[in-house]
Design a protein around this nucleic acid. Sequence first.
DNA 1: AGACTCCCCTGAGGGC
DNA 2: TGCCCTCAGGGGAGTC
Length: 283
Amino acid sequence: MPELPEVETVMRGLQPSMEGEVITRADVNRPDLRWPFPDRMADRLSGRRVLSMRRRSKYILADLDSGETLLVHLGMSGRMTVSGDPLGQFVHAHPQIAKHDHVVFHMENGARVTFNDPRRFGAMDLLDTATADSHKLLAVLGPEPLGNDFHENHLVTAFKGRKTPVKSALLDQGIIAGLGNIYVCETLFRAGISPRREVGKISAPRVAALVPIIRQVLLDAIAAGGSSLKDFRQANGELGYFQHTFDVYGREGEPCRRAGCGGTVSRITQSGRSSFYCGKCQR
DNA sequence: AGACTCCCCTGAGGGC
DNA sequence: TGCCCTCAGGGGAGTC
């Protein structure tokens, strides 16, 4: 499910209920998600104040007053939703434990934050805040596409001489962090580049042009509250709606949206995942 | 090093 | 209605 825009949307939605607030109690309803939870996770969360929340790639990070940072990954089907807000800000109330509600945070302010993940590809961990960036899941990440470290030279260097298809390269979290299948497809459509194109054979100007396109695709998606296919929900339970503006993703057999193109959207499989593109205007 | 494949897991949707 | 098959937004591990 969640790529950078969805994780950013969830994190922003959680902030009003969690940032600066105390976790009175955490209910941990199973021993693991993708990996075992850290030792005594419920105890280490209970009574802690959340000092700040941020996003790195597809991870949500919450710095606690204990000197530890809670790391959350939503995997493919994970949701974090807020209910029980005493201000009535969140009308999506589900007071009972539903199927796949694996972790529930009870906030001192009355909010209840529920982590629900049917497929359990998600993850949670606790790390030392001071050395969080060197955590093995974070240390391997490339620059944030919306940050200053992501620029034309970075991509030109990363692509130089490599035979990887551009689809695979943009999915590589070590080259650029946070893109997933949907936004890579949409990016390549806007750039007019075929997903099969070897990165080493894309001219430097076309590589450079990817930078603002990637940023704009992500900003557009964040502004739309992310994309909801099957699973994604914002923290208040609402759908995102960027999926209504997909140019190629999920549009196999439908007409290309580029003005005057007249092509048809194709689907191919690359490294086990579907790529959608117009073979006529993406070269 | 780089490029594959497989796998973790549940649920939805299509064909019959 | 039900069964079986395929597929899904991520990403780590293992292999060549």
